[in-house]
């Protein structure tokens, strides 16, 4: 594993954030399976090192845009479990007062401009946020998360062109989990993904998205360079989603083998890898790790219970927020 120059506290926070994502998703999946969650949701489990490695290089002033698979980005950017579960259950105390749900969860307090249910739909938004930073002389950076499937959207090429022309402080982070819905990436993406950005003169990187330290080290460098006006950048992160495309995608052997899933889970799990490293390096003991895990599990259980008991928005809210005051 690559190592970044950070202290013990940073390492443990990164570990904690990854476990928080996994635990959040396990609980969300459970809510779906027990028919307590309205609609469907897309699990981020398996991709934790991507969101955490990148978001740990950001401050609350830095912005991100997220995707339909957005819980991981939201947690990694600092969101609160209670407000997130409330949103997933359509409750008034959710981040979007129940109006957005899983696919539109957003958390302005930590710079998360929101998940998006249109694949590629946030690429313009992220680039616009970066243009605003440049125009207003602000040194914040925007990270645009999107999947391999989203590289097929024309919008990406329009905005990368402008970002490169105008040297915008934006990082395009392509989470390549090998699939877009039920189709393998090779079948929907011709040529190399990083070459797409390079065609615009954008420096592009391809990296193991299961190695949180490597991701974080690269992210720190790129964020610092963006702040100096050297952006934009493009990063392709090789990763894997453990669950189906969404929680209801259970029988998926027709497009993805159990053996492949098992291999990623057992041999490349980002949390297990980092945990082993932490223990090996003497950053934390097994007991300390277990204590962290237990604390997070309790946090999540409490938040779920809280959200289940929370109230739905009052019916009068239905036509509130259509127009800004």
């Amino acid at each position: 594993m690559a190592s970044a120059k950070t202290n013990t506290e940073d390492y443990l926070r990164m570990y904690r954030q990854m476990v928080r994502i996994r635990t959040f998703e396990d609980n969300a999946n459970q809510l779906y399976l027990s028919a307590k969650m309205p609609g469907l949701t897309h699990m981020y489990s398996g991709e934790e090192a991507v969101a955490v490695g990148i978001c740990e290089a950001l401050t609350d002033d830095d912005r991100i845009t997220s995707t339909h698979r957005g819980h991981g980005h939201c947690v990694a950017k600092g969101a609160d479990f209670k407000k997130m579960f409330c949103e997933l259950l359509g409750k008034a105390e959710g981040y979007c007062r129940g109006k957005g749900g899983s696919m539109h969860i957003a958390d302005q307090s930590h710079g998360n401009l929101g998940a998006n249910a249109i694949v590629g739909g946030s690429m313009g938004i992220a680039t616009g946020s970066a243009l605003r930073a440049k125009l207003q002389g602000s040194d914040d950076v925007t990270v645009c998360f999107f999947g391999d499937g989203a590289t097929a959207q024309g919008l990406m090429y329009e905005v990368m062109n402008m970002a490169a022309l105008w040297k915008l402080p934006v990082i395009y982070a392509c989470e390549n989990n090998g699939y877009s819905e039920y189709t393998r990436t090779e079948e929907i993406a011709a040529g190399s993904i990083t070459a797409r950005a390079e065609a615009f003169g954008i420096e592009a990187f391809r990296i193991d998205g299961q190695d949180v330290l490597a991701v974080n080290e690269l992210a720190q460098k790129l964020v610092a360079r963006c702040r100096k006006g050297e952006g934009p950048f493009f990063v392709e992160l090789e990763t894997y989603r453990y669950h189906g495309h969404h929680v209801g995608d259970i029988n998926r052997e027709y497009y993805r083998s159990k053996a492949e899933e098992k291999d990623w889970r057992e041999n490349r799990d980002p949390i297990v890898r980092f945990r082993t490293w932490l223990v090996d390096q003497g950053v934390a003991s097994e007991d300390e790790i277990e204590a962290i895990n237990a604390e997070i599990e309790k946090d999540a259980a409490d938040a779920v219970a809280y959200a289940e008991a929370a109230s739905y928005p009052d019916t009068s809210e239905v036509d509130m927020h259509v127009y800004a005051a």
Binding site: G98, K99, M103, Y312, P313
Partner: peptide, 8 residues
């Protein structure tokens, strides 16, 4: 816009 919450 169609709200997510079933209550709405």
């Amino acid at each position: 816009p169609v709200p997510f919450s079933p209550a709405l």
